[in-house]
């Protein structure tokens, strides 16, 4: 199969970008989307052009580095997977595929399809942790955790921090990401002492970064490669409300 790629190319944040169309060589439907970009880049390099810059690393859907908005959907047409786990069999021979970077003010464009997602680190630094000094922890069995709570916490903790929720949200809201982190700790007994301080600090950092607000469209849940549930946003909303009332 072959496809036509319409890719956003932009040298850096200060230069205007544009779409450039590339015809791919013959491709194997079992190729991943990123492997197809590799092939195109090999071709560009040999033609003396600069290859397309895109983020990627583990290529097994867990590191959260890869991004891309493919035909208007972050991480491509398949549900519940990251771009690196998107395969060409999801497309048809001859398709024109539009490839854009994640777009959000807190995700500044670096080059081509690469954006900066340090805003997430700053939100995490604001409070996304349980303050426990190394070596000071009690025995792991000191606090039993109900299986249901552990499972729900794990559902939230599965977030890979890719930013697709922000990219797809019409408001560029980061609430799915933030709520997943808030909920993971909020659901576990270990996270209780800092529960309200944490949610207040993280939400307020999220606001400072300039993410939009949630209008509950649910598109974040729909594109999340780890299928993080919208319910965690409700949970965060509840916790933040309590935090406000407590002055946390």
């Amino acid at each position: 199969m072959k496809v036509k790629l319409k890719v956003w190319r932009q040298r850096n944040a200060d230069t205007p970008g544009r779409f450039v169309v590339y015809d791919t060589p013959e491709l194997n439907p079992n190729m991943s989307f990123l492997e197809m970009l590799d092939v195109v880049n090999e071709q560009l390099t040999l033609q003396g052009e600069e290859p397309i810059a895109f983020d990627h690393d583990c290529r097994e859907g867990i590191c959260g580095t890869c991004s891309l908005v493919i035909n208007g959907k972050p991480h491509g047409p398949q549900r519940g997977v990251a771009t690196c786990q998107t395969y060409l069999r999801s497309f048809r021979d001859g398709d024109e595929i539009l490839v854009e970077p994640f777009r959000a003010r807190p995700f500044p464009l670096v080059k081509d399809l690469v954006v900066g997602r340090q805003a997430f680190d700053r939100i995490m630094t604001a409070g996304g942790f349980i303050s426990v000094r190394t070596g000071s922890a009690p025995d792991a069995h000191a606090i039993p955790v109900p299986k249901e709570a552990a499972e729900r916490a794990m559902d939230a903790a599965a977030c890979i921090g890719c930013g697709a929720c922000v990219a797809v949200c019409k408001n560029a809201s980061a609430m799915l990401f933030v709520s997943a982190k808030v909920s993971q700790f909020g659901l576990l007994p270990q996270g209780q002492p800092e529960r309200y301080r944490r949610v207040a600090a993280m939400v307020e950092q999220m606001d400072r970064e300039g993410f939009g607000a949630c209008t509950v469209t649910g598109s974040c849940e729909a594109v999340c490669p780890k299928r993080i549930s919208l319910d965690f946003i409700a949970r965060m909303n509840r916790d933040y409300g309590v935090a406000l009332l407590r002055g946390a």
Binding site: R103, A104, G212, V223
Partner: peptide, 25 residues
């Protein structure tokens, strides 16, 4: 206004809903 400001550059692809109902958008 703040939601609009959060995405200064729009996508080129026509917006698709992905799980979002028309009323929500």
């Amino acid at each position: 206004a703040s939601n609009r400001a959060a995405r200064p550059v729009a996508y080129a692809s026509s917006a698709t809903s992905y799980g979002a109902s028309l009323s929500s958008r």
